[in-house]
Design a protein around this nucleic acid. Structure first.
Lengths: 111, 111
DNA sequence: AATTAATATTAATATAGGCTAATATAGCTC
DNA sequence: GAGCTATATTAGCCTATATTAATATTAATT
């Protein structure tokens, strides 16, 4: 599933924003997102599953709790797609600055 | 409408990829996207409208033709949202490199 | 001016996917 | 171990939205 198909949902985006600030339990996420969007524990849990299966988040058990964390790989995909359009808004940069601006892409482990 | 809601559609993404290579007429886009996705002129035209109204693309008339072009503003929104997650995958950069890597965000015209 | 070409619009339909309700599973606490 | 807590799963419903078919609009061509 394409990264944008996953990010094209406000609940999932909000969950990821929460995870961007650090790990959170399912319960924490349900509390915040459930309140903000007025949806049930079930709905949030289902979205967590989508994020897990799509590789945007990972889980580990902590007793009965499930602790979620951001999984960065898929975000790079999004960033890479944006490269198609960066030339439309980035100022002209010299070669080194361009390299840096691209997040030193070449350092990434080869596919 | 949130930028990701717009990008969460494969047809719209493909149209934007085409526009990333330069301006194209509606007819050109219909030809490529229509063939690749097996959809009608109408469907493509409606997606072009969505992209126009969402500010991802602009049009100008050229006789009976409509010439579409990328409109960069909304892409910056996406890039900005990604900032939440960059720390998870970007190498540690010094202050200057970080500034450059962020596309000199501060140069952007104030909201 | 009539016809054709290029594109957009409208109305109706269908499908995907997000949601609720109910239930299941697993770990804690007493 | 019984009951409570935390989370996940399943089934069915509902809505949003992408699509088609038909039609409208505007410009080019003859």
């Amino acid at each position: 599933m394409h990264a944008f198909d996953i990010l094209g949902d406000p609940v999932r985006r909000r969950i990821l924003e929460l995870l961007a600030t650090g790990e959170h339990s399912s319960g924490d996420i349900v509390a915040v997102v459930g309140r903000e969007f007025g949806i049930t524990q079930s709905a949030v849990s289902q979205q967590l599953r989508v994020l897990r299966e799509a590789g945007f988040a990972s889980v580990r058990a902590d007793g009965a709790r499930r602790i979620y964390a951001v999984e960065p790989a898929r975000f790079r995909e999004v960033d890479d797609w944006l490269d198609h359009f960066r030339s439309f808004w980035l100022p002209k940069l010299d070669a080194l600055a361009t390299e840096v601006a691209r997040g030193k892409r070449k350092r990434r482990s080869p596919k």
